[in-house]
Simulated assay, not measured.
Amino acid sequence: MYHPSSGRRILLLGAGRVAQHLGPALWRAGHTVTHVWSRTLASAQAVAAQVPGALPISSLDLQSLPAADLYILCVPDGAVPAVLAEAAFPAGALVVHTAGALPLAVFAPYPALRGGVLYPLQTFSPGRLIEWLSVPICVEAGTAADQDLVAEVARSLSQVVEIVATPQRQAIHVAAVFACNFTNHLLGIGHALVQEAGLPFTLLEPLIRETVQKALAQPPFTVQTGPAVRQDTATLDRHRELLLGHPQWRQIYNELTASIQAT
């Protein structure tokens, strides 16, 4: 892993899942996380407690933020504009967000700021260890110098750092929703259905692993299996009958079947 010759002074704004993982990772990479801000002091304290030397700040502290080399917004996408509008960053501060869908242009109303993006392409959950070395990080900034600085920080965390402009990053984010969020929801439906049948979810684990491994080894559309791609109408009808008690899941089944058959 790349390590900067001298760590940066970084202030985190937000105390959610991204901040909970990113704060300790930045410290391990040799940076100084000076402060963690959150609207509630307890949330800021919880994250700061995981980062040696970090101080928690909240509420009115947003109006007098301490100096830092980099400010990282780890708040929900919808909260970024509000935080930018409320926060009193030092003039010329370099501020980046961690969102996949937000454009770099979100910083346009604030010409006194230097805007950028540090988007880790990963799902973050409490209690899960993240192997940052392999996490792709998409970087973007308004100037080449700022882009280099953000990329430097990103490379201290990961070996997979790419300069990605807003349109491509937004496309990646949509793809990630399909590959991660929607897939997890479908696994949740599968989990519920086997539980209703009085069977353990572990029965599906080998199938799930092989499906993912196959999709990573070859273009997923080329290895599609199942009754939809076989045009097995009898089996499809039986499944629809079994799903009568779950009309929403039945609708998903029908839409995915149609999508598979049309692809």
Rank of each mutant, 00 (worst) to 15 (best):
Q50W: 03
I57S: 12
G115P: 02
Q50L: 15
Y110V: 01
A93W: 05
S64R: 15
L94N: 02
P136A: 11
A88C: 11
Q122F: 08
L55C: 07
G92H: 01
P56G: 08
A112W: 03
D61W: 11
A101Y: 01
V117N: 00
D146A: 10
F124S: 13
H97L: 07
P66I: 10
P66Q: 07
S59L: 12
E86W: 01
A145M: 01
T98W: 00
V117Q: 01
L84V: 01
V83T: 10
A105L: 09
T123R: 05
P126Y: 07
A105M: 09
E86I: 00
D69Y: 12
L133K: 14
G116P: 04
P109D: 07
L102C: 02
A88H: 09
A67M: 10
L121H: 09
Q63R: 14
P52V: 09
V153D: 06
A91V: 14
L121R: 12
R155A: 05
P76K: 15
G100I: 11
P56T: 06
G127K: 10
Q122M: 09
Y119C: 04
E131M: 02
L118S: 04
L133S: 13
L129G: 01
A88F: 00
L55E: 15
V75N: 11
R155G: 04
A141F: 07
